[in-house]
């Protein structure tokens, strides 16, 4: 056991806050929120990449898929209700993820106020880029929605209901390709550490499942990044035109 060192005022230092059993007050509670919201967004990304790959089967199928998203759940759900439910769930997940990440990060930085003079190579690249990678992804999502959902910053004439042409417009600009590909690499890195970490946070991880979870995390990261990047590459090479 650690020594209770006897010396002056330092030892008398009271804990920074009163202990509480509350869910949101706890670092584990906040991490649980981050893990659960992350998994919701990850599930969405898997559906999103699957839909994106339809672009390789021509404008009819891709635009038809876009239209189906609006009548999803019919006749039980009214026009666009399914889409709006998905948007609300995703927005809630993004906000919960960002707020918990922000609060935990601030706490973590405060908990280690002095850096070591002798610096050493830290954890893996994916682990070290979680915070800034997350910020990059947040900014990307804003641009992505303004580009291909609302068309506010879209290059060329944005046409609602013609996603195939809109996608080609975006990936016909150099900056569209650069922003998108960088963001998709960030997604891969974020998912790689994020998925595995979420499993640990939710208590699913253990020594026996370690290999399976690492494999699944790497596979998800690779499939998502490759799948998403395939679209701009397809436009650039003329496969999608």
């Amino acid at each position: 056991m650690a020594l209770a060192t006897k010396s002056g005022r330092n030892t008398a230092r009271p804990p920074a806050a009163a202990p509480t059993r509350g869910f949101w007050a706890s670092t584990i509670g906040k991490k649980t929120v981050m893990a659960a919201s992350g998994l919701i967004m990850l599930a969405y990304l898997v559906a999103h990449v699957t839909g994106n790959l339809k672009v390789f089967f021509g404008p009819e199928e891709f635009n038809g898929y876009g239209h189906w998203l609006r009548v999803m759940g019919a006749p039980v759900l009214h026009h666009q209700w399914g889409l709006w439910i998905a948007r609300i769930v995703l927005l809630t997940a993004v906000v919960a993820h960002a707020v918990s990440a922000y609060q935990l990060s601030r706490r973590d930085i405060k908990a280690r106020p002095t850096a070591y003079v002798h610096r050493r190579k830290g954890a893996s690249y994916a682990t070290r880029t979680m915070r800034w990678g997350g910020v990059v992804l947040g900014l990307f999502i804003v641009w992505h929605v303004l580009d291909l959902t609302t068309g506010t910053v879209h290059a060329g004439g944005f046409e609602e209901g013609r996603p195939y042409q809109n996608v080609i417009d975006t990936f016909s600009t150099w900056y569209g390709n650069v922003i998108y590909i960088v963001a998709m690499l960030a997604v891969g890195l974020h998912v790689r550490h994020g998925f595995w970490s979420a499993a640990q946070t939710l208590g699913i991880g253990n020594a026996r499942r370690e290999r399976a979870l690492t494999f699944l995390a790497n596979a998800l990261a690779l499939v998502l990044t490759a799948g998403f990047i395939a679209v701009p590459v397809g436009v650039m090479t003329g496969v999608v035109s």
Binding site: P15, A16, A17, A18, P19, T20, A25, S26, T27, I28, K30, K31, L104, R107, D108, I109, K110, A111, R112, T201
Partner: peptide, 8 residues
Amino acid sequence: DAEGFGGC
């Protein structure tokens, strides 16, 4: 948490 340790 009350002691000011960071999260994991």
